[in-house]
Simulated scan of single mutants.
Amino acid sequence: MHMLANDDHGLVNKQSADSVSMTTDRLIEAFQSHGMQIFARIDQAEAARKSGLEMRPMELVLFGNPAAGTPLMVEYPSLAIDLPLKALVWEDAEGVVWVSYNSPEYLQQRHGLPAPPFGPTAALIEAAIRREGQP
């Protein structure tokens, strides 16, 4: 059994009805369709296998928009530790797939920003993991 971190720690966890791979594909498509750049897609389970280790499916996507992020990093240099943005897609011990990411409010508080940054990111993630006919 695992414990999901909650929003109090800045981590948002959203359940997906699709596999890790399909969820990651849908996230990448959503990000790219909104002008975001995909910097990396890291299959962490594959990296583990190459090292002789086993883990459940897990992929990390690094994404962002340099035109939006660069001015923020210039003004708030510490923000560069959290950019590009990341979405972690992973399967738990029960076979449930999750998407985890830092909440905009967490990033705001962590770096002393006047407003939560990257607000549309949460909506894009929600839309990407929502299946037709689901609320």
Rank of each mutant, 00 (worst) to 15 (best):
Glu54Val: 03
Met55Ala: 10
Met55Ser: 07
Pro57Asn: 05
Pro57Thr: 05
Pro57Ser: 05
Pro57Glu: 06
Pro57His: 08
Met58Asp: 11
Met58Gly: 00
Met58Cys: 12
Glu59Trp: 01
Leu60Thr: 06
Leu60Gly: 01
Leu60Ala: 04
Val61Ala: 06
Val61Phe: 02
Val61Met: 07
Phe63Leu: 11
Gly64Asn: 10
Ala67Glu: 13
Ala68Arg: 08
Pro71Gln: 09
Pro71Trp: 12
Met73Pro: 06
Met73Gly: 08
Val74Ala: 14
Val74Glu: 13
Val74Gln: 15
Glu75Val: 08
Glu75Phe: 06
Tyr76His: 14
Pro77Ala: 13
Pro77Lys: 09
Pro77Ile: 10
Leu79Ala: 13
Asp82Lys: 09
Pro84Cys: 08
Pro84Ala: 10
Leu85Arg: 13
Lys86Cys: 04
Leu88Thr: 10
Val89Gly: 09
Ala93Gly: 07
Gly95Val: 01
Val96Ala: 14
Val96Pro: 00
Val97Ser: 03
Val99Met: 04
Tyr101Ala: 10
Pro104Ser: 05
Pro104Ile: 03
Pro104Thr: 07
Glu105Leu: 13
Tyr106Trp: 15
Leu107Trp: 04
Leu107Cys: 12
Leu107Glu: 09
Gln108Arg: 14
Gln108Met: 15
Gln109Phe: 08
Gln109Ser: 14
His111Leu: 12
His111Met: 10
Gly112Arg: 12
Leu113Tyr: 02
Ala115Arg: 12
Pro116Gln: 07
Pro117Thr: 05
Pro117Gln: 02
Pro117Phe: 04
Phe118Thr: 05
Phe118Ser: 13
Pro120Thr: 01
Thr121Ser: 12
Ala122Ile: 04
Ala123Gln: 12
Ala123Ser: 11
Ala123His: 01
Ala123Thr: 10
Leu124Gln: 03
Leu124Arg: 02
Ile125Asn: 11
Ile125Leu: 11
Ile125Asp: 07
Ile125Gln: 04
